[in-house]
Design a protein around this nucleic acid. Structure first.
Lengths: 271, 271
DNA sequence: CAAATAGTGTCTCTAAGACAATATCAC
DNA sequence: GTGATATTGTCTTAGAGACACTATTTG
């Protein structure tokens, strides 16, 4: 009978086959559209960051940012590092959406990936619109279910339009999982990851937990409502939204100015 | 510029360091206690399966069942395979609770683990009580929060009593994460995994989604209520529970018999 | 009959949703 | 003033929780 020390000295990890492990980042932000009317508040869109791949495989296709797990770090640290490296901003929130481990999901070999939703506030987002030479771009997100049950994911950036078709494969424990019918040109199984992340984002938005992460330190209640409506693709009555959110925010002394209508009080998140 | 085919031919995955990947199973069931009174329905306990480790590291300690991810299978398939191998029964439900990737969580080296909650119905559970020679045993679960905020996890099987102390480390997006203060002799970081799994189980039990998985095909509403109460450690009024569950079940023509009180109608899950 | 659970009816309170009404600013 | 949003108030309704009461079985 050998001691634990002896055992560990003779133990060789390389005897077993091992996969490469990556963290993929599904980074969302809310962006304002141009207002066509000086009185009207600007409408907002949910946007997602994609990176054009410079090398094989899926060269020139759009993909989620991400990278390999390094020795000595946790998968969360890896996600944070990759998010910062590739988006140049520190995310305001990070949430795991699961491990994707289909054996053939990566043509390079055995690569499994833990996906994370990352939220970047409008405020932190400093990229100039029109920098279209960059390999990283924000795409507008449209994710809806068709009559026949299929889910359609459309990502748009200027003339670029990626359209993926997915089916829902039995959801276990409330987490639905998707299968790709048509990747729409999105690299790897990333259409599937994006669909899963969007579902997680929407189901969480009911609880207001991270709506705040999309906004600056202070905000109006209409902005906060707007975030929820944009993410969940619904609309609610302002009066009712105010009541529900009231206990989670606190007033400041500030007001918005310069809008063509009654100024709104600025609020901050109550801790 | 090389083609994608050439690229893949020259790509060597072994150039990058890779972790071993495992799936760990947190298998729960509901077990009935002996009734001390012929009239009284038996009380139930939430139980968890642990395995006594026969080899190093953590030799003779209790640990979660689990095993390495094999090439060609998904982590879900791996979890299902390991669950069947080590518990001898096919789980009635399986839910991921996240990837545990602390660099030093396993003394053998770089091993990361995706944990799964597995539910085994009372019906499928055929093990005889008293088979205490086996390396796999069901432990009664007690998980509560102390005044000072610490969480105490107590696992009991006969004379064996494992008592771990954990603290809650900021919960992001509703998923709370724990740090181990005292493992109580439970192997690896498994106390932490169990605490996380229990939290996930409890928060999901509100929606009734998998309460059915703990029970046979047909059951009484009191049994179903009992499952919820046992998992969540609460009690609710029968009248109210019936109203809430009514739309999810359908009647059968069968009744319980032989109890020292009014027979109960058997129900089945409505699909 | 006694003890225990099974099952029904109903009251109250809260919260959600719908909608009406008023307030305030920039032009 | 006009057009837009901000903000408050109130009505209705659905659901949760509390509780009282009846029904049915076995020893």
């Amino acid at each position: 009978m050998s001691s634990e020390k002896e055992f560990l000295n003779t133990y060789r990890q390389d005897d077993y086959p091992r996969p490469s492990v990556t963290a993929d980042i599904v980074a969302f932000t809310i962006r304002a559209e141009e207002s066509e009317n000086y009185r009207q508040n600007s409408r907002t869109k949910l946007s997602l960051l994609l990176i054009r791949r410079g090398g094989h495989p899926f060269k020139d296709c759009w993909a989620l940012p991400g990278g390999f797990l390094n020795p000595g770090e946790t998968i969360e640290q890896c996600a944070l590092r990759e998010a910062e490296e590739e988006t140049a901003v520190r995310p305001d929130a990070l949430m795991s959406v699961g491990l994707f481990s289909e054996p053939n999901r990566d043509p390079r070999g055995w690569v499994i990936s833990n996906a994370f939703v990352s939220i970047i506030s409008e405020e932190r987002l400093r990229w100039k619109p029109g920098d279209d030479a960059s390999d990283a771009q924000w795409f507008d997100v449209d994710f809806t279910q068709e009559e026949n049950g299929d889910f359609i994911l459309v990502l748009t950036h200027g003339d670029i339009r990626l359209r993926a078709v997915l089916t829902e494969e039995g959801s276990s424990f409330g987490r639905s999982s998707f299968a790709i019918k048509d990747s729409g040109g999105i690299a790897f199984d990333h259409a599937r990851i994006i669909a899963t992340a969007l579902t997680a984002l929407r189901s969480g938005a009911k609880e207001f937990a991270y709506l705040f992460d999309f906004l600056p330190e202070t905000f109006t209640l209409a902005q906060l409502q707007n975030v929820q409506e944009t993410i969940m693709n619904i609309s609610v009555l302002p009066a009712n939204f105010r009541r529900k959110i009231a206990s989670l925010v606190e007033e400041t002394d500030e007001y918005t100015r310069g809008a063509g209508h009654r100024p709104a009080k600025l609020y901050r998140r109550k801790r």
